[in-house]
Amino acid sequence: MRGLTHRAVDEAAGLPPGSASNLARTRAALLELTLAHLVELEERALAPALESGLTALDRRPSREVLVGLLVEALQVQIADVRRSLARYELALEATRRPELRRVYDRAGRRFRDPAVALLAVLGSPDPVRHSRQLVAFTEGVMFDAIAGAGESPSREDTHAAIRELLDGMLGPA
């Protein structure tokens, strides 16, 4: 994170010196813009999986459709190591900067709120708590595959693990 400076952004973007500071006067503003851009990149990367999965869930809400959606989303996130590592860096930075924490949490709700709604539709007795557990589980799988000591899980392993988690939350299918 120390390398994220106005000067570094100008150089990486091939812009004249001072360009980044015209958009973001302070380091805090630069971090917020970086996080906003990262959220856009994640939404763009996840859009195909989310659109097809959410369309399928609208037509036929089922646990298996949700499992497929989550497997696809995890595979997309794990495949883009650079973007995922940037998100981890920003998450750690947000632990030290309350103003960034608020932005980070607000951005996270864009991904977490749909999980609450989906789990409610699938019959969760506590969709808020279950969505937190689901997000924590998927984040753990991602972190282990990207920055931990684990390997990237296969689609089959991911599918089985998510199905087992949902069975524990919602009861057997």
Rank of each mutant, 00 (worst) to 15 (best):
V67L: 06
V67K: 04
V67E: 04
G68C: 06
G68W: 02
L69F: 06
L70A: 10
L70D: 08
E72V: 08
A73Q: 11
A73R: 11
A73W: 05
L74C: 13
L74K: 05
Q75W: 12
Q75E: 15
V76S: 04
Q77D: 09
Q77M: 13
I78Q: 03
A79Y: 01
D80R: 05
D80G: 03
R82P: 07
R82Y: 10
R83H: 07
R83M: 09
S84E: 13
L85Y: 08
A86Y: 03
A86M: 10
R87H: 10
Y88H: 14
E89K: 12
E89L: 13
E89R: 13
E89G: 14
L90I: 02
L90V: 01
A91W: 06
A91T: 11
L92T: 12
E93K: 07
A94N: 00
A94D: 00
A94V: 01
A94H: 00
T95P: 02
R96C: 09
P98A: 01
P98R: 05
E99K: 11
E99M: 09
L100S: 05
L100R: 04
L100N: 04
R102H: 14
R102D: 15
R102N: 13
V103F: 08
V103G: 09
V103P: 09
V103K: 08
Y104R: 10
Y104S: 10
Y104D: 10
D105E: 15
D105Y: 13
D105A: 15
D105Q: 15
R106D: 13
A107R: 05
R109N: 14
R110K: 13
R110C: 09
R110E: 11
F111L: 08
R112M: 15
R112N: 14
D113E: 12
D113P: 06
D113L: 12
D113C: 08
D113A: 13
P114V: 02
P114H: 02
P114A: 02
P114W: 01
A115V: 09
V116P: 02
V116Q: 02
A117E: 10
A117N: 07
L119E: 00
L119C: 02
V121H: 09
V121Q: 12
V121D: 08
V121C: 08
V121T: 13
L122I: 06
L122Q: 04
L122A: 03
G123L: 07
G123Y: 07
G123F: 07
S124R: 03
P125I: 08
D126N: 10
D126K: 10
P127G: 05
P127F: 01
P127I: 02
P127C: 05
P127A: 04
P127M: 03
V128C: 10
V128S: 12
V128L: 14
R129T: 14
H130F: 07
H130A: 08
H130W: 08
H130Y: 07
S131T: 09
R132A: 15
R132N: 14
Q133P: 11
L134E: 05
L134V: 07
L134C: 06
V135H: 08
A136D: 07
A136K: 02
A136P: 01
T138K: 03
E139C: 04
E139Q: 09
G140Q: 00
G140W: 00
G140F: 00
M142R: 15
F143K: 09
F143R: 12
F143S: 13
A145Q: 03
A145G: 03
A145D: 02
I146P: 00
G148M: 05
A149G: 15
G150H: 05
G150F: 06
